[in-house]
Amino acid sequence: MSRARPARSAAVFLLPFCVLFTACFIAPIGYALYQSLLKSQRSGPLGFGREREVFAGLGNYTHALQDGRFLQGFGRVLLFGAVQVPVMIVGATVLALLLESASARWVPFFRTAYFLPYGVPGVVASILWGFLYVPGISPVVDTLHRVGWDVDFLSNGTVLWSIANIATWEFTGYNMLVLIAQLTSVPGELYEAAVIDGASAWQVAWRIKLPLIRPALVLTTVFSIIGTLQLFSEPLVLRSLTSNIDAAYTPNLLAYNEAFAANNYHLAAAMAVLLAVVACVLSFGFLRLVGRTGKGDER
């Protein structure tokens, strides 16, 4: 076989994907970088002349980074992620270990019940939970009120955690399924051997199962971090129910509003770039932290 053949054949298989990948991933990033370095300027003495685009250097970036609302939004999603991601991952791990333990019953029913919310679109989940948060409609608020506990799920202090609850409800079951998939890929004899050696169920879970599902834990955590930074539809939907969520509640919401409400595409592009950079730094930082590069493919 000639040496040129594999390269030519590979090109045939890779080309269609690579063309679309370039159009939908690489080109937008390049375009966002380019747009983020420009600004609109009106000519003429009173600024009523034609609008044109001029080079702005890093002006949009300094503008974004000096915008208190943008930084506050970042602070908010970071706080959100620091609490919600561990809660969700721990919850998913506990459920996965319990479902795979010997003492569980009705496993297929429980597994399906936990996984179902993943099939509910984020906005629909937000609409749904929104109804469960609003006094007057919500049976939860209703019931709690009757037992003498008045809670406001949409107050300034609680609404972030109400959003966290929606995200947890949606994705715990999905993460659990990833963990179960890895748990069941480990040969059962390993557990049996440990049990014969006198290990308790707790020891098997802590000493054997947890280390074995580490790669899946890393994967789900990284995806959760990326998901957290993109927080958008939940606050957007709940905004119509409470005044405690403003147009700059999350960085994504602010970038969207800058682009479509304020028509400031250049600033929005800079914000999108910053968002992608933070996402990459956090995911790679986490992968570094757990001691793997995440790209190791020995083949």
């Binding site: 890779l14 690579c18 990948f21 939908c24 991933f25 690489i26 080109a27 937008p28 990033i29 375009y31 966002a32 747009q35 990284v222 990326i226 930074l229 993109q230 958008f232 994504n252 970038a255 969207y256 682009a259 595409y265 929005a268 592009a269 999108a272 770039v273 968002l275 992608a276 996402a279 990459c280 995911s283 790679f284 995440g294 790209k295 493919d297």
Partner: peptide
Amino acid sequence: EGVFNVVLAGVLIPSTALALPLYLL
């Protein structure tokens, strides 16, 4: 490996960060 790594990096980019510039394009 270069191609593969670029594609993998695509997994880590928030899709909402791509949507705005994609709309402009």
